[in-house]
Nucleic acid binder design. Structure first.
Lengths: 167, 167
DNA sequence: CTCAGTGCAAATAGTTTGCACTGAC
DNA sequence: GTCAGTGCAAACTATTTGCACTGAG
């Protein structure tokens, strides 16, 4: 299993930037330098990130392309509304990942190394819809996080136990 | 579908209170009035609740059985460690529910009325384990929340649309 | 009698907001 | 030119912590 394993991507007609511009214009919102800088930056790399990590990666205060913290938060919310990003909470902080042009998937969360791993499973969605139908619940989406220990950490701790003669 | 639908319960040999006392003693932690008051209160009703709701339900400051806010937070954490409660985050705040003596289940979250509904599905756990096995991930547990609109809200909005002639 | 647990007040952390300025339209 | 968006500083909210006191063992 590899972290952030590429899952391929869904064919989309517009780049995230163009999609976002379209979204802004359709709502009479303005296409600002900050919004463009953020959409470009966020979609230049496919990783999970939180607001702090994003701030660190951005050009320093005063430099071209810098964006203030409040604007980062406001814009991340806009990305979520626009369907560009998915947000979820991990250890009490908001974590974001690409949604637009990216297939529906779920996550393993390794409690040892705290990394997130993506996986896709068709049957899961079918089962979800079946269960929802039985309960007459109209599904909009779902959030599944499987917690446990990833292969790597699993091996590491087995090795450690062996080395220490603890079995 | 009914909110907080009782799912029956798993046979357990000890009451939550006794289970908690056992947990405390096995770790050399003290059995205090506050901890007993909280375990009794929390397991006297089967509902989802957050720290604020719990504080409100507790006897007022000065009265018998009152517990301060920091202690409530500390003790809720102990309940989770002891396996008595499950904690999860909803709209940025911690929500708790009974875990001890209660079957594994998942949730529907209605985004309209903000209520939580429980459901049980055997096949879901099987599928989870199967997927984890494929990815060599050692499962400790999972968290699944299906978001959407519950039957009641669904009907209410259909009625409203009809009434307003908006199709 | 000792030290873990408690309550208080204050700190913390992530996020949000009010407001005056700026730049997109 | 107008008003939505921005940056700053300050507010906010849920939760956590330092510390002196209290009570469980």
């Amino acid at each position: 299993m590899s972290e952030q394993a590429p899952l391929g991507h869904v064919a989309v007609s517009l780049s995230p930037r163009d999609r976002f511009v379209e979204y802004l214009q359709s709502r009479g919102m303005r296409v600002t330098q900050q919004r463009l800088a953020l959409v470009d930056h966020v979609f230049s790399r496919h990783e999970h990130f939180d607001a702090d990590q994003l701030m660190e990666q951005l050009p320093a205060s005063g430099a071209e392309g810098h964006v203030s913290r409040p604007t980062v938060y406001r814009t991340l919310g806009e990305f979520v509304d626009a369907g560009l990003l998915r947000k979820f909470i991990l250890n009490g902080r908001a974590v974001y990942e690409h949604d637009y042009g990216y297939p529906q998937h779920d996550h393993f969360h390794c409690t040892q190394c705290n990394r997130l791993f993506e996986f896709e499973n068709e049957k899961l969605v079918e089962l979800r819809d079946e269960v929802a139908r039985e309960h007459r619940f109209r599904v909009a989406g779902h959030r599944l996080i499987i917690t446990g220990v990833c292969e790597e950490c699993s091996r590491a701790s087995r090795r450690a136990r062996h080395k220490m003669n603890m079995i």
